[in-house]
Amino acid sequence: MNTFVALCAVGAEKILGNELKHLGFQLVQGNTPGRVTFTGNDDALYLSNYSLRTSDRVYIQMAKYEASDFDALFDGCYRINWQDYFKKDVRVIVDKVRSHKSKLNSEHSIQGMIQKAIYKKLGSIWHITTLPESGSECDVRVYLENNIVTILLDTSGEALHKRGYRTDGGIAPLRETTAAVLIQEMMWRRKTALHDPFCGSGTIAIEANLYAHNIAPGLGRHFAYENLAIYNQQRAVEIKKQLAEQIRTDVECRITGSDIDPVAVERAKLNAEHSCVAAGRALQMIGSDAKIERPEFIVSDFSDLEAPYETGLLLCNPPYGERIGDIQEAEMLYTKMANLFTDFKGWNMGIITSQKTFEQCIGKRAVSSKTLKAGNLDTVLYKY
């Protein structure tokens, strides 16, 4: 069994944990904000990266040990069998170091010591004084908390929110992983109608569509583990085929989106098409020509909308006044959004924003709320 660490938005740890348990992984107690540790066999390397909707990255935990000085830091890193994971032309990058409440607090010095230990170990095992570094880059991350060192090896490469279907996110796109978190937070089910009245690049509707059809979000992209010596291409393809067999092509969904901007709507349609084409390629691997239903997008101001069904979920990411417009414009918009309670009577609503005056502007207190870190912003999902 191997130990892995999955990163996520701060506030999404429970949802990510539920995802991991659903995939059959065992959670390790004592997680910190934005990180969930779990164990799994060798297949977990592929299954987690292909399947996780709410995780930003997946790492192999290479070691965890106490180090109150640089000698201990070096020795613990040197003991790791790095030669089992790297090819001889590897270029190792210690891409991030975080130290908290530890005697070793110079992140630059920690970075240098970890890099030195890795290269010294590889050189000793391979009997070379200088590594060529002509191959692929492999990233290592280090956390020090209360003098406990955790060394992680990246298996994802590009962040997992980059599914591969979104060629253009527009001005202020919502991360795909954040959209997936919102869908889970609202406990949406595929039989329930879903509409996003500020669809932008279509992320919420597309993520809902992937979830409804049980399409693993990582089927259409590559991962950093493909550059590691432990990569088993045959096994990765086998797992990909297993996930393709689990795609539901027999479900009927009512997933829609709208936006006042015609360019945004066209962008959303294109991104949705890309997501379904990627799923189609996965289906072809198992000899299926089945098609995936596309979400529908229309050009409309939210104030002109009427609920197409008696019940459903309205889920949206309206402008915050951060990257689009200003705070005053955002607050005016939220005030106008009060009409949605009349136009979509009988529907549940989920609205995410970073503006603390939202409830005051819309004129109604949420039934509950959830604080989430969306990128660099502290946001709140208001549930009605």
Rank of each mutant, 00 (worst) to 15 (best):
N2P: 04
G11Y: 11
L16N: 11
E19G: 02
V36F: 03
Y50T: 06
Q61I: 08
A63V: 07
A67R: 07
C77M: 08
Y78F: 12
I80T: 04
D84Y: 06
F86A: 12
R98Q: 15
N105K: 15
E107P: 11
A117I: 06
H127F: 06
E137W: 08
N147I: 09
V149T: 12
T177I: 01
L194K: 02
F198L: 10
T203S: 02
I204H: 01
E207D: 07
N214S: 13
L219V: 15
A224L: 04
Y225P: 03
N227H: 11
N232K: 14
Q233D: 15
I239S: 09
K240E: 08
R248D: 15
T249C: 03
R254F: 05
I255Q: 02
S258R: 04
D259I: 07
P262S: 07
V263A: 09
V265G: 06
V265H: 03
R267Y: 03
I286Q: 06
S288K: 11
D289A: 14
D289F: 15
I298Q: 03
S303P: 03
L305Q: 08
A307V: 06
L315P: 00
N317I: 15
E322T: 13
Q328T: 14
Q328Y: 11
E329C: 10
T335P: 00
M337P: 01
L340D: 04
K345G: 11
G346M: 12
I362C: 02
K364I: 14
V367M: 11
S369C: 10
V380R: 14
V380M: 14
